[in-house]
Design a binder for these strands. Structure first.
Ligand SMILES: [Mn+2]
Ligand SMILES: [Mn+2]
Ligand SMILES: [Zn+2]
Ligand SMILES: [Zn+2]
Lengths: 138, 138
DNA sequence: AAATATTTTGCAACAACGTTGCATTGTATT
DNA sequence: AATACAATGCAACGTTGTTGCAAAATATTT
């Protein structure tokens, strides 16, 4: 399946800029997730820190990427599947973070389990983050 | 069940100091979880920011409190059950964060479900964080 | 294609959060 | 009570993220 960067930006009514193209390209070419710092390092001095923050924010709002909760409370991002749209994320899959190589995976095929909450509690979102060793490191 | 602050500190070979006593007391008296900022506010100018950071660190290392991963990537802490010890946490329960009142609950009775990971992946820890409305806010 | 309107970017300044080194103070031990 | 040891407060610093605004880039209109 091919992913058109320009199409994605247009579809979301975002103007086509260098930073948006390159940052989105990084996500498309990466299996795992990316942190702000990863993008900053990969792009060198090409973009300002602030631009990267703003680009990530915009992508999250538009449903192009989603944030991943991690055990160490660092922020990571990964591409959304096509079902996500502005203000409506549907990334209800399990995330995996390798203790060895640090790679964060979206386990798209493993959906988050249903839980019986205590009386009076209602859920709007459930995040599952698994830590351990990934396929490469095992 | 009663919780002796002094006993807990002694059991973990920690010297008995004002900050440790008062901060641990806050956790014992609180149903939910506490953030660094909560402790700072509740204690006024009594302790330095750094002391609070170091006390929380020490308590986590000793297995007295555990950190709670949250959807918004803020750091929270809650009391551990007695099974936890230095370097060995066993807080495998579900956490709940109320979107309305912000309270974070340890749902001790709901243990994290077992998941079938992809081939080659092994889990060392699974964190489940549910967001939604709590009993009070529903 | 050029002119205009709109968005995005880079910079600077700031705020929140967290860490480290070291002298001072407090706790434990003899 | 004297000594040894550990924790605290302070200052200084680093990292992460935000905001306002002028300059630059992109989109739209003529
Ligand atoms: Mn994901
Ligand atoms: Mn808990
Ligand atoms: Zn790995
Ligand atoms: Zn609530």
């Amino acid at each position: 399946m091919l992913y058109s960067i320009i199409e994605t930006l247009k579809k979301n009514q975002l103007s086509i800029t260098d930073s948006r193209k390159k940052i989105l390209e990084m996500f498309v070419k990466t299996k795992g997730a990316l942190a702000h710092a990863d993008i900053e390092h990969q792009s060198g001095t090409e973009f300002d820190r602030v631009t990267i923050y703003r680009t990530l924010q915009t992508f999250v709002e538009k449903g192009i990427i989603h944030t991943i909760p991690t055990a160490d409370n660092s922020v990571r991002y990964a591409l959304c599947k096509e079902e996500c749209s502005e203000g409506h994320h549907h990334d209800d899959h399990v995330h995996f973070m390798c203790d060895d190589c640090g790679t964060t995976y979206c386990l798209d095929k493993i959906s988050v389990p249903h839980l019986n909450l205590p009386n009076g509690f209602t859920a709007s979102q459930t995040d599952v983050v698994v830590s351990g060793k990934c396929g490469k490191c095992n």
